[in-house]
């Protein structure tokens, strides 16, 4: 029952975002509101086993959602700007020293691993290639390995980010 309610509310919210500005009850017209309720219930019935598959309702907490928005706007965006300046430098000068390294993280939940992998893909010099399913270690293609670092068996996840401590943010949001 709880997965159904969460999924229906989520679908209704998405419908409201898409139809904002259609009338004058708030921002919506009455027919759009009725259609949104009907489609939200239908979405909840059909897909209730997909959104909350692990019976884990941690992300329904509004504080975590606000933290997620702050995370995307502030530290993540700063790292992304630095990443793009880095890519611009590498494209122009072609100074590269590429290789695939192993990075260990202590994250356990699926959402945490997902956010860490996507953050790594969009931040300086690294893209995620594969994941070790048992230990949750990530394999990362690094475009510029430092001198002597290729001997290391595994990196820590905080070593990849220089300006902000993104793994600590992810741990606070998703664990």
């Amino acid at each position: 029952m709880i997965p159904f309610i969460i999924t229906a509310l989520f679908g209704f919210f998405i419908y409201l975002v898409f139809t904002a500005g259609s009338g004058n009850i708030g921002l919506w017209s009455s027919s759009e509101l009725i259609a949104g309720v009907a489609l939200g219930i239908l979405t909840g019935i059909v897909t209730r086993n997909f959104l909350c598959r692990k019976k884990n309702y941690r992300m329904a907490n509004p504080i975590r959602l606000i933290l997620l928005a702050v995370y995307i706007i502030l530290p993540f965006f700063i790292e992304m700007t630095k990443a793009n300046l880095d890519v611009a430098y590498r494209v122009i000068t072609m100074k590269i020293r590429p290789g695939i390294v192993r990075v260990e993280s202590n994250l356990r939940t699926d959402l945490g691993i997902f956010m860490l992998a996507n953050s790594i893909t969009l931040t300086p010099g690294t893209i995620t290639v594969d994941i070790d399913e048992k230990t949750h270690d990530l394999f990362i293609h690094n475009i510029n390995i430092g001198e002597g670092d290729e001997e290391k068996a595994a990196f820590k996840d905080v070593e990849l980010f220089s300006l902000a401590n993104l793994p600590a943010w992810i741990r606070r949001i998703a664990e």
Binding site: V87, R90, I96, P98, I100, L122, I127, H141, I143
Partner: peptide
């Protein structure tokens, strides 16, 4: 860029 993975760096981020 010379190979697939480095090309992917450029396209994904930029």
């Amino acid at each position: 860029f010379p190979d697939l993975y480095t090309r992917m760096h450029a396209t994904t981020k930029a």
